[in-house]
Write a protein that binds this DNA or RNA. Structure first.
Lengths: 338, 338
DNA sequence: GCCTGGCACTCTGCGCGTGCGAGTGCCAGC
DNA sequence: GCTGGCACTCGCACGCGCAGAGTGCCAGGC
């Protein structure tokens, strides 16, 4: 077990390194943090910390930098979440309140997160399967063509065009619309399949094929993987990454383009609170030198989606975690209101 | 006026520089293009081209690179648009055909463009004002709360929640819905304001306030600047930019985050065909070392939005223009079908 | 008059050696 | 167990020289 002072030394190293972006030496440490001991003592502690794998030297006779393991310890034990100040909270609220629709909420959230944390922000659209149905609309485009529009309680809208096997009259359409809505309105999307199963039976034989087709399109829309949309922003912040650019930034940009990767990344975080994945803890190779700070958000008590930021492992964890948590909270509020 | 051979020399310089990314010298030129003259002659031509401002030397005793003016001449006079090959065209079509909704079409288009051109792709959502109305839907959320959903012929959906000044019955709502649709369905969005002006008069006095509120929200939705959404992709391709990274890439990423800037960029192109803006021709400073190749696309003969790519001024113009044009054509087809 | 080969000149990039400074590890003493 | 001192190790910035690429110009030839 590490002594209290050694933990303090680790904390100091992390803080200084995050601040200066340069390996930190024993002398600088004692000067900037009054640890009450001499550089020589700190050197011994550092040697111990290095043995344990919490810090490393980029090369002999350079200062130390934290390893992923070191950051992990720092996040878990040595640092809290830095709450936002009152003015910051007000600014967040003001900024989000001007949003006119869901796209706008998400877009503003991304910008806000990117600005607050000065990192790359990722916001997932509220998930369909975890939302509830507000309304299902059916529009006749042509005799055998129907547009299906789904509206969720979070304001998300999905639409699909359905080609019907047979012409479908306005009356039948109105009937289906009414029945469908009476069954699924205000129910969770996840429950919809069970609720509509027997619907075709209520219709004339000639319409059953069409009803089934519409329903199966509806169900497809719900389960489809690409239901999970997301928006990213603040990629310009990647340029503050390091001095050894192309090599570092490239794989990150590539990973960010792969929505699937990002969704998995956010999805993995099961913790109800803020989750931090550091460096190699991220499954995707391109993100091995980044950390991901994410959290769920939702209109009620329950999370309907996630949001977070991607930044260098050398980031201000307490501040970032605070910002991410605060933004998630306010986005939840905004969604609940609309 | 420049002699025919000098133009050929310029063309050769552009082609070689685009290929190698290195300043091209007189000797290399004569070796790779059979101009039928000696390096010394080419040197004279180069000196002339430099006097005219078409090419420049990064430093004394280096090869020449084209200037913006040189690229401009190349694009206007010396190069055509390289058409896609048949397999490429098939690939584009196949890739786009799998799309399920408008978001998906746009997302696929961005990916496709980025892959084909190996540059940053930008696709604008079909504009509202230039589209036609397919349907307007009104949903009652609460006695004095209505959700307004707009669906365009291009598949785009917009929704707004309207707080009404007074409770609004289901019957009135249905009435408004019917009147609204009979007036505006299949009309161009731009014409909507004139078509609904006198609608409130058809209603009972107590409902007029609500009707006006709903209508004004509808009109707001149409004119709002943020109606102009867009999607970008392929930012990872920026890493192929140059060797002097951070300085080049940073402002570009920043510019790309500013949707307003991008929209203006695409908007400026008035030409019905493919438009190319080279280097300093772009108003935005951050994009002074990039070129933008854009073109309008639409479901009918008319352009409803633009798409294009952003890349280094040193790009393969004929190929890029061909790809952009081809993609626009197929996206138009897909939109027309759905 | 235009093209050509030759020649001197200029400049960048690269490899190399050097000195400096930061930082370490270890040890003897308190 | 902490401290001051000391020798040691590297990385980095700097200066130098050299090779190579490319130019401009000139005198001669078609």
């Amino acid at each position: 077990m590490l002594s209290e002072r050694r933990l303090q030394v680790l904390r100091a190293i992390v803080q200084d390194y995050v601040g200066t972006e340069e390996p930190v030496g024993s002398k600088a440490l004692t000067e900037r943090h009054n640890l009450g001991v001499s550089p020589a003592t700190v050197r011994n502690d550092m040697a111990a910390l290095e043995d344990e794998g919490f810090i490393a030297q980029p090369h002999t006779s350079a200062g130390r930098i934290p390893t992923d393991k070191g950051y992990r310890l720092f996040v878990d034990k040595l640092a809290g979440v830095k709450p936002m100040t009152a003015p910051e909270r007000r600014a967040i609220q003001n900024f989000l309140e001007g949003a006119v629709d869901l796209d706008d909420v998400v877009a503003r959230t991304v910008r806000l997160l990117a600005q607050l944390t000065r990192q790359v922000a990722v916001v997932q659209y509220p998930s369909l399967t975890r939302s509830t149905v507000r309304h299902v609309e059916l529009l006749s485009l042509a005799p055998a063509r129907v547009m299906l529009v789904l509206i969720t309680d979070t304001g998300r809208v999905e639409q699909r065009v359905v080609d019907c096997p047979a012409p479908f009259g306005e009356a039948s359409l109105a009937d289906l619309r009414a029945r469908l809505n009476s069954r699924v309105a205000n129910r969770r999307f996840a429950d919809v399949p069970g609720l509509v199963e027997d619907l075709p039976e209520a219709f004339e034989h000639e319409d059953r094929g069409t009803v089934s087709t519409v329903l199966s399109t509806l169900l497809e829309t719900l389960v489809e993987e690409n239901e999970e949309r997301l928006m990213i922003g603040g990629t310009a912040n990647l340029t503050r990454f390091g001095h050894d650019f192309p090599l570092t930034i490239r794989p990150v940009l590539e990973a960010l383009e792969e929505q699937v990767v990002l969704l998995k990344l956010l999805g993995e975080a099961k913790d109800p609170g803020v989750t931090v994945r550091i460096g190699h803890e991220n499954a995707h190779e391109g993100l091995n030198s980044t950390s991901v700070v994410s959290v769920g958000y939702g209109s009620g008590g329950e999370a309907v989606a996630k949001l977070g930021v991607v930044g260098p492992t050398r980031m201000d964890y307490p501040g970032t975690m605070g910002a991410v948590r605060a933004v998630a909270r306010y986005v939840g509020q905004i969604l609940a209101e609309s």
